[in-house]
Simulated scan of single mutants.
Amino acid sequence: MTGDGTDGGARLARADVVARLDAVIDRTLREAELVHEHPAPGRWVVELPGTHKLKTVCGLVVGEHALRVEAFVCRQPDENREQMWAHLLQRNARMYGVAWSIDRVGDVYLTGRLPHAAVTPEELDRVLGAVLSYADDSFNTLLEIGFGSSIRREWEWRVRRGESLRNLEAFAAFAQAGRADRPGDGGGDPPDGGG
């Protein structure tokens, strides 16, 4: 710390920014009736309820210059990685406020940054709506691309055992594609790996 108190002034200014943005975030989340946690100043965890992806958890972190938005969408794909990355990258140019990204292990996220001045209730609502829309609308397609063989194996296993297919109903056409012309055992993956 310098003798003129500059570092202390910077900390106070930062605390003021965090407090101001926390108030905006708190009001926005309460008015939208979203389940959320506020584990620390400048840190929020929000649950966005969906249809295909039942819940998308989105983190909001007030940084030095921007609000960071980060939502986990799905784990790294088991197969067809290049096809999934191409699918996501082709969509990035048309997206609002966030973009598809992956972490070091290949897990899929939606990430973005809003400058402090842009953090208003309306803009935060718009960005959270974009996160929900992109995660929810893309979820089944991402699972089909990255986990298609597993989905088909699970479907076939449940059919053979007479188990419920209720939580796989969204994948019925996908899981059964190409099965009608295959004889008898209903087992195995299609030669192309299910992609």
Rank of each mutant, 00 (worst) to 15 (best):
R161E: 07
E64V: 11
I25T: 11
L12A: 14
P77N: 14
N80E: 07
V62Y: 03
V17H: 09
V131H: 04
G186A: 07
D103I: 00
W157C: 08
A71V: 00
V24R: 03
P39H: 08
G112A: 06
P39I: 13
R158I: 06
P49N: 07
W85R: 04
G162W: 13
V159E: 15
V35H: 11
T56F: 00
Q83A: 15
V62R: 02
C74P: 02
T120P: 05
H65R: 15
L114E: 04
R43Q: 09
L142R: 14
R158C: 06
G50Q: 04
A130Q: 07
D125H: 12
L29R: 04
A66S: 12
A19H: 13
R153V: 10
D26F: 09
A177K: 03
D7Y: 14
D103Y: 00
V98C: 08
H116C: 10
H38E: 07
G148L: 01
V69K: 05
L128R: 01
R179S: 06
E33L: 11
D192V: 02
R27V: 10
D137R: 14
V61N: 14
C58Y: 00
P77W: 06
R20C: 03
G186R: 13
A93G: 05
V127E: 04
R11A: 13
L165G: 00
E123H: 11
Y96E: 08
S150L: 08
L142W: 15
E169P: 00
S150V: 07
N167E: 15
H87Q: 10
R81D: 08
A135V: 05
G146C: 03
V105W: 14
G186W: 13
S164N: 08
Q90L: 11
V159R: 14
V24Y: 02
V17M: 12
D192S: 08
S101W: 04
A71F: 01
E37Y: 02
Q76W: 01
G187I: 07
T51L: 13
L165T: 03
F139P: 02
R30C: 11
N167V: 12
D7Q: 12
R11N: 12
G106N: 12
D136C: 01
G146V: 01
V131L: 03
D78P: 01
G59P: 02
R91M: 10
A180K: 11
H87K: 14
W85F: 09
E122D: 10
P191M: 00
E169S: 07
G3H: 14
S101E: 11
I102T: 15
V119N: 04
N140H: 14
M1R: 10
G59I: 00
P49C: 09
L132P: 02
R161D: 04
D16T: 14
V24E: 03
K53C: 09
R94L: 09
V105L: 14
H38W: 07
G112I: 05
A135G: 06
